[in-house]
Design a protein around this nucleic acid. Structure first.
Length: 111
DNA sequence: CTAATGACCATTA
DNA sequence: ATAATGGCCATTA
């Protein structure tokens, strides 16, 4: 189990319509100070590395690892491969409430 | 092995 | 509220 894999494991469990912070994920994998590394992990391989989902089945909006459900500690959306704009749209489409570039505290999954 | 790279975080100005 | 600063850390070159 590599750090990166652990991260995917956790992120996969985030329910639809909810979000978790990078910090939160870091803590969930037992490395409270590795928030930055978490962002890095997602940035590299989200759906590519997870290998499953044969070729052609690419659905950018609902990847095997819902990396769009991870936001910053201050609840601002944060970055995304396709740009923060897209990230926001996807989250909204899942029912996450976002205003002023921030998600509402109620949509936070775990701490 | 060392250096560089970020989708981060908390503090301070 | 925003901007700069220093710190943290796994991954990659």
């Amino acid at each position: 189990m590599t750090f990166t894999d652990s991260v995917y494991e956790v992120v996969k469990k985030i329910p639809r319509g909810k979000v978790m912070t990078y910090k939160g994920v870091a803590e969930a994998v037992g490395k409270p100070n590795a928030a930055r590394a978490v962002g890095n992990a997602l940035n590299r391989n989200p759906e590519l590395k997870t290998g499953d989902r044969g070729p052609g089945t690419a659905d950018r909006r609902h990847p095997v690892v819902p990396c769009h459900r991870v936001v910053r500690s201050d609840l601002k959306v944060g970055g995304f491969v396709r740009g923060s704009e897209e990230k926001t749209r996807i989250l909204r489409s899942e029912g996450v409430e976002i205003d002023g570039g921030r998600v509402s505290l109620g949509d936070l999954s775990i701490f």
